[in-house]
């Protein structure tokens, strides 16, 4: 079944220079496997295509059922230089959670 990530994961984001980092945590080890297969760096880049002008880097943190993404060049200069409302990428975690993936129904929580 196709569901937004917020049904099966949670996230937090912050700034790393002129990039942001988005940590995504799956709700179980099984869901981590499902998410890790589909949520490639390319998929995240496509989702943030109007936000992130650089590369997306992806790291696995299986002990926390988590993936970490670095969205390079996505803050309009970053820190004090940026003119953006979200100069620190604080909203990027919430943004990632709207991306949709395929999850077997047996792994979905009660709606």
């Amino acid at each position: 079944m196709r569901v937004p990530l917020y049904r099966v994961a949670h996230a937090r984001s912050g700034d790393k220079g002129d990039g942001s980092n988005v940590g995504l945590i799956a709700d179980s080890p099984e869901l981590y496997e499902v998410i890790a297969k589909q949520l490639t760096a390319a998929a995240v880049k496509e989702h943030f295509r109007l936000v992130c002008r650089g590369e997306v880097e992806r790291f696995e943190v299986p002990n926390l059922n988590a993936l970490n993404f670095i969205l390079h060049d996505s803050l309009g200069g970053g820190g004090t230089e940026s003119l953006k409302t979200d100069a620190q990428g604080k909203t990027h975690g919430q943004g990632l959670l709207t991306l949709e993936i395929d999850v077997p129904e047996t792994l979905l929580p009660e709606p």
């Binding site: 949670h10 790393k16 980092n21 940590g23 945590i25 790291f59 696995e60 988590a66 970490n68």
Partner: peptide, 12 residues
């Protein structure tokens, strides 16, 4: 967990 990943780069 959310805070552990905050402002994280390479987790290794």
């Amino acid at each position: 967990s959310e805070q552990l990943l905050y402002e994280m780069g390479d987790p290794e």
